[in-house]
Design a protein around this nucleic acid. Structure first.
Lengths: 336, 336
DNA sequence: CATCATTTTGTAATGGATTACATTATGCAC
DNA sequence: GTGCATAATGTAATCCATTACAAAATGATG
């Protein structure tokens, strides 16, 4: 491995000059600078990452944990984060937690070991190590929550207005003429689900139709959407529309309807949440709440970088715009 | 930050003993060991990653580059890789290249800087830095290719038998009675596409029906599947079945058929490739070639670790089993 | 109890870059 | 040409853990 000393020797200067020529060019006179650059190039020199990181106490890394990396919603967020990180010459370390707290803790420990300068977590749970860090460092703690917003955690976050979005989804169904609506939420441990449910309640109450809403708790998966739709449709007076808190569950819901010989949207409307990559190509194309996924990822990184640069002013909770995208999976209820 | 010296002081031993107690417990007598462990715990000590990495010249990191992280095929591979890496106490640095060679080079440079011990790339192109590394280190170069297999690259790889799989897909269509078949490939720069196309040719020639095959070159995206299907169907004597080299293109193909008022599989059968997460839930559920995505990721990591441990014996090119999954998007051609 | 082998522990060098501080070179004014 | 401010460069300490080697402790043997 070529070291800075090799370059220094080749260029006939000190290691200090090499270091400066590379990382702070203005501090070196032109002739030296090109000498150094040339020597570095000739030797194929690249600064050793560990040494640099040890000396500067900066890793230029961000650790991002996701509950499930193969979920296209999360992977879109990751994509945005990666982009923003790259632009700032940071790199992303990705941890798939599989919703498992042991893994969450494992990744959290990376901050302690200074493997990363900061952490972004997409989820609603904070590993004990991180809670301790927040307790100690307060708003200086280099932690940002993406997608969710749990005030008790005391960390900055980026998300959409989940309650508002959910209310809009409901209102869309009411506007189409639906009265009996089934709602399939995500786990109620997550604020995302609770917020959306509040929005549902608000919208329903506004129409004096809360009695006509049936709520079931899913887990965001296709399977749970499918199973719970069967449950909803099996009752007397089944709903004419189903609002799922994720597109995956909406896909499951539509599959269940089909299994029961029902057509979406003719017999039952379905509305999803997220606007994942396949929402448009699916048949029927999903009506859904579009989340600015890439932007959430980008913004989360930017917020984290601001904290790291000590430019953040207190905790921030940023709300990004969502959008109701009406496609083919919703329609007026069948006559009668 | 607490350092090893703090722990040493607190435990009344030397730093060497602390280091040993932590990373090589057998080398330390029982009483000391517990002294040290207790002190470390009390102080909340965790070894500094950069220092450790600098000293040992091991980063315990693997860099994995993907052309598009939000593609569920790749994210499933990543998931498998992450798992295997974690099991070996390595962590994964993920780089989304957006198919962009500059980014490929950027991530490749991480190896040079020793930010990672090895690299796995899902794609068919090797950045110049990596090519140079392979030229220098030969089969010792810590690089593994996932999904594709390009012999000229001289790196080990994990993949399925693409030609065989493609031939099986064609044979499935022939068995159903199809004669005129449209094929939508991926970019022919990638060996994956070329191999699959060879399989198609083999199967068609075996039936003496190569004349009846129409090939179009896509880019694996939903959009290209859609556009090229329109092209295929616009001709005189359009195909009765379409084989797409990715599920995403198959989804696009089915959408195009629907736009033309055609039903899949009644009027035209469609078969995909990959068996992504949504293949099953899509309507009609996709007939496709299932790739062992997680296993590819896992295996790639294992191969890389073997190279790093100098346990690999020469270049390896591992073929994992695929499977034709027949679902609802294929059926016999319409009568007449 | 002396001797030697074996464990255990400590001392200090090491990995490679950055940077405070010291030194030397350069430029400008008179 | 001298003196002084400023720019450029160099010397060496530093970041923190690991580990070769040296030293000390322990135990076994006769």
């Amino acid at each position: 491995m070529t070291t800075i000393a090799d370059v220094a020797r080749a260029a006939g200067v000190s290691t200090a000059t090499v270091s400066r020529a590379l990382s702070n060019p203005d501090a070196v006179s032109e002739p030296r600078r090109s000498q150094v650059l040339q020597a570095a190039k000739a030797l194929g020199y690249a600064p050793n990452y560990a040494a640099q990181s040890l000396r500067t106490t900066r890793s230029q890394r961000i650790i991002l944990t996701v509950p499930d990396i193969s979920n296209p919603f999360f992977s879109a967020v990751i994509r945005g984060a990666e982009e923003a990180a790259l632009a700032a010459r940071y790199s992303l370390l990705i941890g798939d937690t599989h919703h498992d707290s042991e893994r969450e803790e494992y990744y959290a420990a990376m901050l302690t070991r200074r493997e990363a300068d900061g952490m972004i977590f997409l989820g609603h749970r904070l590993a004990p190590t991180m809670v301790a860090l927040v307790a100690k460092q307060g708003e200086e703690a280099p932690i940002v929550n993406g997608c969710e917003f749990e005030p008790g955690l005391n960390v900055s976050s980026v998300h959409i207005a989940n309650a508002v979005a959910a209310a809009e989804a409901m209102q869309h169904l009411y506007d189409l003429g639906h009265r009996r609506i089934g709602v399939i939420t995500g786990p109620l441990l997550s604020p995302i689900s609770r917020d959306r449910l509040s929005g549902v309640q608000g919208a329903a109450a506004g129409q004096r139709l809360w009695d006509e809403v049936t709520v079931r708790t899913g887990d965001f998966s296709v399977d749970s959407g499918e199973a719970l739709t069967h449950e909803l449709m099996a009752g007397t007076a089944p709903p004419t529309a189903i609002f799922c808190f994720s597109d995956e569950m909406a896909i499951g819901a539509i599959a269940a309807l089909r299994e029961r010989g029902l057509d979406c949207p003719r017999d039952v409307s379905v509305i999803g949440f997220d606007d994942i990559r396949y929402a448009r190509a699916f048949h029927p194309a999903l009506t859904t709440i579009s989340q600015p996924k890439e932007a959430i990822g980008r913004k989360a990184v930017e917020m984290l970088l601001a904290i790291l640069a000590r430019k953040a002013e207190g905790l921030a909770s940023i709300t990004l715009p969502h959008e109701l995208v009406v496609r083919a999976s919703t329609a007026p209820p069948p006559a009668g």
